[in-house]
């Protein structure tokens, strides 16, 4: 047990991904909303078992990429044609052809930043305080155990009911973690 304070979540420990996946399906079907599965590696099929939808990270990539391309083209056009025309060998002052490599690299650069920051934003990271990180057993969540945490703030949460549900999943260790 971690700290004093009000209870944060009921946490169940699992040894295999198959057990945890069945448990996740049961929690999903029981209608819980504020809960999560913590795994040391991505488990194939867990998104479906939890009833998660496709991630929206791609939109951030798209916004980053289009910004990069547009910025690149506008920058080269403005610098070479508008702000300081530099005629070389009678060639056009701006052409999307010679501007392409730089705009292309900027598309990828800002697309990559969009992806990473989009992931961080959607995951609300960095978040250096988390009640579960104070729970000593939870150290194994990055090692070889899987944890299902159902938050006490979930509208369906009840001490007895939720514990019974998690017990029926075959978890051998269930504990309340305090905030």
């Amino acid at each position: 047990m971690s700290n004093t304070g009000k209870p944060y979540a009921l946490v169940a420990e699992f040894e295999t991904p198959a057990l945890a996946m069945h448990a996740a399906e049961m929690v999903r079907d029981a209608g819980y909303k504020r809960w999560d599965v913590h795994t040391p590696y991505p488990v194939h099929g867990m998104d479906g078992a939890m009833g998660l939808h496709n991630s929206k990270v791609g939109w951030f990539t798209f916004i980053g990429g289009t910004t990069g391309f547009t910025l690149g083209m506008l920058m080269i056009w403005w610098m070479g044609k508008v702000d300081y025309a530099l005629p070389v060998g009678g060639k056009p002052l701006f052409s999307p052809i010679f501007a392409f490599p730089v705009a292309y690299e900027l598309t990828i650069l800002l697309g990559a930043f969009g992806t990473l920051f989009g992931m961080m934003l959607l995951n609300r990271l960095p978040r250096h305080y988390h009640p579960l990180l104070k729970y000593p057993r939870f150290r194994n969540a990055t090692h070889d155990r899987i944890y299902i945490a159902i938050e006490c703030a979930d509208p369906r949460y009840s001490d007895a009911e939720t514990r019974r549900l998690l017990e029926s999943t075959g978890s051998r260790h269930i504990e309340v973690v305090e905030d």
Partner: peptide
């Protein structure tokens, strides 16, 4: 960054 291995 406070990674907890959350499946979400």
């Amino acid at each position: 960054m406070g990674w907890t291995g959350s499946n979400r």
